[in-house]
């Protein structure tokens, strides 16, 4: 017992301060849980609380990660480098010129970025887009949720259009530079 601190660390796995922080966190949570337990809807609240973490970690993340993998796979099969970065260097281990030759632009991020943006907008403004809570919406605002779906679609189209035009511009500029380099 000459050195209680190393013994504590070895047994607990971290410092006493760590334990204090954890105890404080769970004490407050416990108090809230006791207070909430009086509510008739406590079970639903717990379900939404845990469900929010589960929905992100085991549904949303796998969906967007898989979608991204599928996109990269599809681009690779269609002959595009999935990246503007290192793979061209691998294809051309010796630079053709001493100067910097820009690599061929990849369409990957030109699809990825607007897709991510529109997906995010859908998640954040979902109630209006999917017309959820019509009655409470009407009572609060005196209006319907009619315009949101069309607006979201229009924003989505704009995002993809801007991104697509930008890609074309990059492609044309690359062809010019690449042509003059030859």
């Amino acid at each position: 017992m000459a050195e209680p601190l190393p013994r504590f660390r070895a047994a607990y796995g971290s410092s006493p301060q760590h334990l204090v922080a954890m105890i404080a966190c769970f004490t407050l949570t416990g108090w809230v849980a006791l207070r909430i337990a009086e509510e008739a809807t406590a079970g639903r609240m717990l379900l939404w609380f845990v469900g929010a973490a589960v929905a992100h970690d085991l549904i949303l993340f796998p969906i967007y990660a898989s979608a991204d993998r599928v996109l990269r796979g599809a681009l690779r099969r269609s002959g595009h480098a999935a990246t503007d970065g290192q793979s061209p260097a691998a294809h051309h281990p010796l630079p053709r010129r001493a100067g910097h030759t820009p690599s061929r632009p990849s369409p990957l991020n030109h699809i990825r970025v607007p897709a991510l943006a529109t997906g995010l907008l859908f998640l954040v403004y979902l109630p209006g887009i999917l017309r959820q809570g019509r009655e409470t919406y009407l009572a609060a605002t005196g209006q319907d949720q009619h315009p949101y779906l069309a607006r979201w679609l229009a924003i989505t189209a704009t995002l993809f259009l801007v991104s697509g035009v930008w890609y074309l511009v990059r492609q044309i500029r690359w062809r010019r530079v690449d042509g003059s380099a030859r």
Binding site: E39, T41, R44, M45, W48, F49, V50, A52, A53, A55, H56, V124, Y125, L126, P127, G128, Q132, G133, T136, Y137, A139, A140, T141
Partner: peptide
């Protein structure tokens, strides 16, 4: 869970969609 719960309930509230039922 806490941050996502706050985001979800907050977003639903400002859009008047009380889907959560509490």
């Amino acid at each position: 869970g806490g941050i996502l719960f706050e985001i979800a309930t907050g977003l639903l509230n400002i859009q008047y969609a009380y889907l959560f039922g509490f």
